[in-house]
Design a protein around this nucleic acid. Structure first.
Length: 501
RNA sequence: GGGCCUGUAGCUCAGUCGGUAGAGCAGGCGGCUCUUAACCGCAAGGUCCAGGGUUCGAACCCCUGCAGGCCCGCCA
């Protein structure tokens, strides 16, 4: 029998033995429990060696290890609030009580303990246990107590093992939730209204990405999973909403790497009667506030560094000037498209003979400038050919009113003063389609129809929530802020192949 | 898609020159009434990622595949 099965068999036997005494290995409740943090708080300032005193407390959590010293045993217990040491001894449990408990107890078991708070001679806050109750048997052993779970593959595939064995991981994902709550709170405080729009779309548009396809049986139609929120939210501004945002999943059928994951959360926000300068000011209020929210989830040094980075004002950089400066190109806007294609090809971009100027300029910018943008930087006023959804610049010819926010070499956000002229919008979509074919934004005709009813002058921004969390939580990989990132299947499916057709 | 690296006990990792597979932790048995990576003793535990090849002999060398990591490319 392999060792793993042997270990599980032993734990099953302990479980059965306990059941034979009439106790359940999976009882329904453990009433009256308090967080271990509350007991630690109670014991603050009590001197070492203080005998058990005060009222009885009940705590519950996961038993981490068992140190058995004959007639006593020490069992660190962890719940979400922290850890508390259980002190088991014949003095409080009797010889039989201690022996019975140690007979079924294994590291990793979920247990409840009732006892009296105390501080050991070595100064460790503890609970002098009178009764120990199994709340749920762990048939699998937890990872090794000192090194923990290291295997990056298991950490992703079995995130629950990562979480139960790595307090840092649990803490990071609590940080994710707290930051998102603060994000929503901040936006609501600024007067934005949270909305939900459909994930299933006939045509996924508002961005450049391959969509996932699914099928709706009732309508007998294929649908696409959304790749952006933009076109739905703008319809709401046509309808009369003035400040809206949505935070929700979008799906892009593309590769997985340290800054991309196919299913991720997008924040998009639209603001009527405001422009992209107003939005920069909002971002400069929002990010410093979120950096403060993130601080308790980081070491003091890292928290300080993150907060210093996100101290406004952020750097401003003109797209064209920055590109020319870093690439050595001059008059980039007036260069013939063939020259741009050649330069883009030279830096390794997948350029075709029909690639438009905007695509080449984007690639050149990504190659020459983006890696240098390690501190928060607004890159502004892109060439018009780079985006079909932004309004032309009020004073710079050939440009649009747009900014992207960069940090640590990746894009954090993308904002425009929104194009709201339906005829120009349609022309821009068609122009791009003519130049890029399948690579262009999908044409959403109902969106054009909506614009014909009139959308106020508006500004809007999209931010990748996971990128934001990586930045605020100092995570090197996007998988560190996604609870269950996709993984490849480990074996070819044993299911028979689907019937043809 | 390209390059480099990794895959050995439940976990963390060694494994020399190609010669019958090792440690620590966890688990079992025994001891121990203040430990906190507890400690001491004994015994047990293996699909060396998978498949093929070379060889008298492969964890180790070669080939193919799978999974993961890092870098590059692609992709907002």
């Amino acid at each position: 029998m392999p060792a793993g099965e042997e270990l599980e068999r032993e734990r099953r036997e302990k479980r059965e033995a306990l059941s034979r005494t009439g106790l359940s290995a999976y009882p329904h409740e453990f009433p009256g429990r308090v967080p271990t943090a509350a007991v630690r708080e109670e014991l603050k300032g009590i001197s070492p060696g203080h005998p058990p005193a005060g009222p009885v407390r009940r705590v519950a959590g996961r038993a981490l290890t068992i140190r058995h010293l004959g007639k006593t045993a020490f069992v660190p217990l962890r719940d979400e609030s922290g850890e508390l040491q259980l002190f088991l001894s014949v003095d409080h449990m009797g010889e039989g009580g201690l022996r019975a408990a140690l007979a079924w107890l294994d590291p990793g078991d979920l247990v409840g303990a009732e006892g009296i708070p105390m501080v050991t001679r070595r100064g460790e806050p503890s609970l002098a246990v009178r009764t120990l109750t199994l709340l749920a048997k762990a048939l699998r052993p937890p990872p090794e107590k000192w090194h923990g779970l290291k295997d990056p593959e298991v950490r992703l595939r079995q995130r629950y093992v990562d979480l139960l064995s790595s307090p840092e991981t649990l803490q990071r994902f609590r940080g994710r939730s707290v930051i998102l709550r603060a994000l929503r709170h901040h936006l609501e405080e600024e007067g934005f209204l949270g909305v939900e729009t459909p994930v299933l779309e006939r045509v996924a548009s508002g961005g450049l990405a391959r969509p996932f396809i699914t099928h709706y049986n009732f309508l007998g139609e294929d649908f696409q999973l959304r790749i952006a929120l933009e076109l739905r939210l703008k319809r709401l501004l046509v309808g009369g909403f003035e400040k809206v945002y949505e935070i929700g999943p979008v799906f892009r059928n593309e590769d997985l790497d340290s800054t991309h994951v196919p299913e991720f959360s997008m924040l998009e926000l639209y603001w009527a009667y405001a422009d992209y300068r107003d939005l920069q000011a909002l971002v400069e209020r929002l990010l410093p506030s979120l950096a403060r929210t993130a601080a308790p989830f980081l070491t003091p040094e890292v928290a300080e560094r993150v907060q210093r980075s996100f101290t406004p004002p952020f750097a401003r950089m003109d797209f064209v000037e920055a590109l020319e400066q870093h690439s050595g190109l001059s008059g980039a806007l007036d260069l013939p498209v063939e020259t741009l294609r050649e330069r883009a090809r030279a830096v390794g971009a997948a350029v075709t003979s029909s690639s438009p100027a905007g695509y080449c300029l984007d690639k050149l910018f990504a190659h020459y400038v983006e890696p240098t943008l390690t501190e928060p930087t607004f890159v502004e006023d892109h060439p018009r050919s780079t985006t079909p959804l932004a309004k032309r610049h009020r004073s710079l010819p050939g440009r649009v009113e747009r900014f992207e926010l960069f940090y640590r070499g990746y894009e954090l956000g993308n904002a425009y003063t929104e194009l709201n002229d339906p005829d120009e919008q349609l022309a821009r979509f068609q122009e791009q389609r003519a130049a890029q074919g399948e690579e262009a934004y999908a044409l959403d005709e109902d969106f054009i129809e909506a614009l014909r009813y009139g959308m106020p002058p508006t500004t809007g921004i999209g931010m990748g929530v996971e990128r934001l969390l990586m930045s605020l939580l100092d995570a090197p990989s996007i998988k560190d802020v996604v609870l269950f990132p996709p993984t490849r299947r480990t074996e070819p499916s044993s299911l028979p192949p689907p019937p043809p057709g």
